[in-house]
């Protein structure tokens, strides 16, 4: 099987890769680039644990072929910090106690980041609607909603 050449910008770094044509973005990130923050929990797009940003928009990386994103920018949880400082969302997730087992956390934060990218001041209802894209099995979501609210306030 012939490989496919792609150039992607991952967390502000231009990367050239030769990937399998049937390789998912999640595989590329985890297996080739050792970016294991995005998690594989269902592999079928049902849970959101593998969410990353594709040109600023949250996507399920388990449903995307890497050849599809040639030329695109990808942001993963590992790329969220700026100048060594945590993103307000990361801070708020810690401070509000929105993290338990942590397996959904990176996907949840990336979904929230996507929301704040397109809506700087989301209402509580908008936050709930947006993070209803992701499954969390530990927290009951309450502290996650509070953390996103807190982060959007901080960023305002």
């Amino acid at each position: 099987m012939k490989t496919v050449k792609v150039t992607i910008n991952v967390n502000n770094e231009k990367i050239k890769l030769q990937v399998k044509p049937y390789e998912t973005l999640l595989e590329t990130l985890r297996e080739r680039l050792a970016l294991t923050g995005a998690k594989e929990a269902c592999s079928l797009g049902s849970c959101g644990s593998c969410t990353v940003l594709l040109n600023g928009t949250p996507v399920r990386s388990c449903l995307i072929l890497t050849p599809e994103v040639d030329g695109a920018s990808i942001t993963t949880i590992e790329g969220l910090k700026e100048d060594g400082k945590l993103h307000p969302l990361q801070e708020a997730f810690m401070e509000k106690g929105a993290v338990q087992c942590g397996f959904c956390t990176s996907g949840m934060i990336m979904t929230a980041k996507g929301l704040l990218n397109r809506n700087k001041k989301p209402s509580r209802a908008e936050i709930i609607k947006s993070i209803s894209s992701n499954i969390c099995r530990c927290t009951g979501y309450k502290k996650i909603v509070e953390a996103v609210e807190e982060a959007s306030k901080k960023m305002a």
């Binding site: 797009g45 928009t57 949250p58 399920r60 996507g114 929301l115 609607k129 894209s133 992701n134």
Partner: peptide, 8 residues
């Protein structure tokens, strides 16, 4: 579905 999947 959900917002994330609506966007894709």
């Amino acid at each position: 579905s959900c917002e994330t999947l609506q966007m894709r």
